[in-house]
Simulated scan of single mutants.
Amino acid sequence: MVFPQIFIRFTVFAALMFTLSSAVSAETRLEARGAGFIDIAPDQVKFSASVTEVNRSAVDAQTQVNSTMSRLEKAIAKFNLNEDSIDSSALSVNPEYRWDADSRKQVFVGYRVNRNLEFTANDVSEIGTILTSLTESGATQVNAPQLAYSRPEDAQQQALRTAVANALKTVRTMASAAKLSIQAIDSISEAKEHFVEPFNNLMRAEASSAVDTAPTVSVGTLRYSADVKIIATAN
């Protein structure tokens, strides 16, 4: 008969669909995040300073600025520097005015010429001495030094490996607690951009007891951080 055969085929097909549906529904999606960090002692210092002069003659102002900049470059040449990092090319010339209350109008003062100096030192123990040299050589402004690490990629990769290991540990703990078995790691992604932050009193100046001695600078550490998200399938 035709009907029983059709019924049997339909029954087998329905049973197969039920089995597949049960297998799919038995899978559980697990999601976990992991953080990792590494504290690194900085081995470089980035300096920036500027020289500014105001003169009614732009040429005279620039001549004075260039003369002072030459003294700065000569002063820092004795230190352990990254030669490729030295840059004193940034120069700006702008007219400057002041408000005259009596005439109620802007009065020309002169031309403000500014030139910047940037460089990286390879010895953090020289921070205080370099700051003193820049100031004594005529820098108009010396910005706060920025501590850095010469191999940031290595430090960041180590932090990332720690974050992944912690995320895997968490997702395995979740599976074990639920009496599940992880079948696959579906994805691993950074939950947020990695970053570097100062940690443990990064830099602190301490006064020297000697009158002609540069201040001692106490240096802390740099913290490289990573945060990842893992999605896994378990049943």
Rank of each mutant, 00 (worst) to 15 (best):
A175C: 08
A210K: 11
V219M: 04
A210C: 03
R223Q: 11
K179G: 05
S176I: 04
V196F: 09
S225G: 01
E206H: 05
F199E: 07
F195W: 12
E193I: 05
S189Y: 13
S176L: 13
M174T: 06
R204T: 14
S218V: 15
D186I: 06
K192H: 02
A178E: 15
V219A: 03
T221Y: 10
L180A: 06
L180V: 12
T173C: 01
E206A: 04
I182M: 04
E190V: 03
N201D: 15
T213W: 01
E193T: 12
M203C: 06
P215W: 08
N200V: 07
V219G: 04
A207C: 02
R204K: 10
A184W: 02
V228I: 07
A207F: 10
A177R: 13
D186W: 00
H194I: 04
S181H: 08
A191E: 09
M174F: 13
N201M: 10
M203G: 15
A191I: 00
R223G: 12
K192S: 14
D227G: 00
A177D: 15
A184L: 08
M203N: 05
S208Y: 03
V219H: 04
T173G: 13
Y224V: 08
A191Y: 11
T213N: 08
L222C: 10
S208D: 11
M203V: 12
S208H: 05
A226I: 04
L180I: 12
M174D: 14
